[in-house]
Amino acid sequence: MSVAGDRIKKLREQAGLTQLDLASKLGINNSVLSRIEAGKRPVEDTEMNKFADFFEVTSDYLLGRTDKPNEDESNISFFGGPDKYTSDEIEEMEAALKRYREMKRRAAEQARKQN
């Protein structure tokens, strides 16, 4: 099997869909889907887009270029993600960011004055 075929099959099964169900929903032939999942046929660009959109994953995930199904997932793991922060932690991070931005603004202003 191909990485794309394996991942498409896994996503289809997780969604509780048969090959016939998925093929019908995507407007592709069932035999095409069967061959893709078996690794006997490459996924065409238009099909890749349909699979990615339907399963709400990136094409990079389907192709095996990343193990993260979507971009959002890769951006929320910073110390457990925003839903794990206390209000005190959020206030501290906002204050730190404000200090950092002010420092960058002053450095840029000083660089302009020197030029």
Score class of each variant (00 low, 15 high):
Ser2Lys: 09
Ser2Tyr: 04
Val3Thr: 14
Ala4Arg: 02
Gly5Thr: 00
Asp6Asn: 13
Asp6Thr: 13
Arg7Pro: 03
Ile8Glu: 02
Ile8Tyr: 04
Lys9Asn: 09
Leu17Thr: 00
Thr18His: 05
Thr18Gln: 04
Gln19Phe: 06
Leu22Arg: 01
Leu22Ile: 00
Lys25Cys: 03
Ile28Arg: 03
Asn30Phe: 15
Asn30Ala: 14
Ser31His: 09
Leu33Asn: 02
Arg35Pro: 04
Glu37Pro: 02
Glu37Arg: 07
Ala38Ile: 04
Ala38Arg: 15
Gly39Arg: 02
Gly39Glu: 00
Arg41Pro: 07
Asp45Gly: 10
Asp45Cys: 06
Thr46Pro: 10
Glu47Val: 05
Met48His: 06
Asn49Asp: 15
Lys50Glu: 08
Phe51Ala: 00
Ala52Trp: 10
Ala52Cys: 03
Phe54Asn: 03
Val57Ile: 01
Val57Tyr: 07
Ser59Phe: 07
Ser59Tyr: 01
Asp60Val: 02
Asp60Leu: 09
Leu63Glu: 07
Leu63Ser: 05
Gly64Leu: 05
Arg65His: 15
Asp67Arg: 11
Lys68Asp: 14
Lys68Pro: 05
Lys68Cys: 09
Asn70Lys: 07
Asp72Leu: 15
Asn75Phe: 14
Phe78Ala: 07
Gly81Asp: 00
Pro82Asn: 12
Asp83Lys: 13
Asp83Tyr: 10
Lys84Gln: 10
Lys84Trp: 05
Tyr85Ile: 11
Thr86Met: 03
Ser87Thr: 11
Glu89His: 08
Ile90Pro: 05
Glu91Met: 10
Glu91Phe: 15
Ala96Gln: 12
Leu97Asp: 09
Leu97Lys: 15
Tyr100His: 13
Arg101Trp: 08
Met103Glu: 15
Met103Lys: 13
Lys104Phe: 10
Lys104Pro: 04
Arg106Leu: 15
Ala108Asn: 08
Gln114Gly: 08
Gln114Ala: 11
